[in-house]
């Protein structure tokens, strides 16, 4: 259900968040290179890739919270058409948590252990205490916390991981931001709890019209809730488009192999899984051409020499591969 491919037309629907040609450098190596994507209101866009491919750095760059070692090169980030890179740090502080929020992988670590659930969720509202409490109670109920009147005065250590993640989501959403960035929000949780949190995120996108950037390494999570997906490899977007289209017919060898490498509940037990030989190159040893060339069965000299651009392979489905038509 819900799979009617809504072709993404940026010109018609102004995106809530747009990232243009983002470049992030560490010691001169482009660990994020030319990343482009946009999310519309009410849409869930997944950023998927293996550990170290640059997903979290992209998220932190959007929030303008990059670690010291990382420098932003080219790139432009627009929130509702406004260029975030042009804002002062003071203006940016007002944007964070109000118009764009972020939640993290380890909910227990991201919450302040010394202040109550209520105080943390209220922080983003900027309302006086008495009014804030009402709003917080409503928000806690909305993210599915049972007995919010009791939970509001508890401390994070009194809550389970799943409940902490709900509190994180509540505090991220209480100011009704247009965009939510969720960095591996369910990786630390069990599958049954993960299913609850994913249902919650999907509901928020639909009911509140929040644009969600969901960062994950789990193709199952992508299949479950993403409207569109961008597959990242070694700092670049390999392929992007509608979730249905990409899973049905990946047009980049990396995506195709990744999907074939997954054990599924429907495959033949003990059958050989497809493997991607070798490993992701370290930033210092990124090759000059296609960064997947060292592991790609289709690689040729052209691939090794020249960076493949993201090209349209049909209705908003883009692939950065010289041989995308050869990928079945």
């Amino acid at each position: 259900m819900l799979l009617a491919p809504a072709p993404f037309v940026p010109a018609l629907f102004a995106p809530a968040l747009a990232v243009h040609d983002l470049n992030l450098l560490i010691d001169g190596a482009a660990v994020v290179d030319g990343v482009d994507f946009a999310v519309a209101s009410g849409e869930v866009m997944a950023l998927v890739g293996e550990s170290g491919c640059g997903k979290s750095l992209t998220a932190h760059a959007i929030m303008r919270l990059l670690p010291d070692a990382v420098r932003q090169g080219r790139g432009r980030i627009e929130l509702d058409g406004e260029n975030l890179s042009a804002l002062s740090e003071r203006q940016m502080r007002r944007v964070r948590g109000r118009r764009i929020s972020m939640i993290f992988q380890e909910p227990q670590a991201a919450l302040d252990p010394l202040s109550t659930v209520g105080a943390q969720v209220a922080e983003a509202t900027g309302l006086p205490r008495s009014q804030a409490r009402e709003a917080v109670l409503r928000m806690l109920a909305e993210v599915g916390i049972s007995d919010p009147a009791r939970r509001i005065d508890q401390y994070p250590f009194e809550l389970s991981g799943g409940m902490c993640q709900r509190v994180m989501i509540a505090s991220a959403l209480i100011a009704r931001p247009a965009v939510l960035i969720a960095d591996e929000p369910t990786t630390a949780l069990d599958v049954t709890i993960q299913a609850q949190i994913l249902d919650l995120l999907r509901r928020l996108a639909v009911e509140r019209g929040t644009a969600i950037v969901l960062i994950t390494h789990d193709m199952g999570v992508v299949a479950d809730i993403a409207d569109r997906v961008a597959v990242m490899y070694a700092g670049r977007i390999a392929e992007t488009g509608d979730t249905a289209a990409i899973f049905a017919a990946p047009r980049h060898p990396y995506t195709a192999l990744l999907l074939a490498a997954l054990p599924r509940l429907t495959d033949v037990p003990r059958s050989r899984l497809a493997v991607i030989e070798g490993r992701v190159p370290a930033p210092a040893e990124f090759p000059p051409g296609c960064r997947f060339a060292g592991r790609c069965p289709l690689a040729d000299d052209h691939c090794r020499a020249e960076v493949p651009p993201l090209r349209d392979v049909g209705s908003g489905h883009l692939s950065a591969c010289w041989h995308s038509e050869a990928v079945r």
Binding site: D199, G220, V222, A244
Partner: peptide, 23 residues
């Protein structure tokens, strides 16, 4: 039911068996 299948067609057609509460 909670295992997300890496296939949007299968995954979204799956009946949900929501488990309430925490472990």
């Amino acid at each position: 039911a909670a295992v997300p299948e890496p296939d949007p067609v299968v995954q979204r057609a799956k009946p949900r068996v929501p488990l309430v509460g925490e472990i």
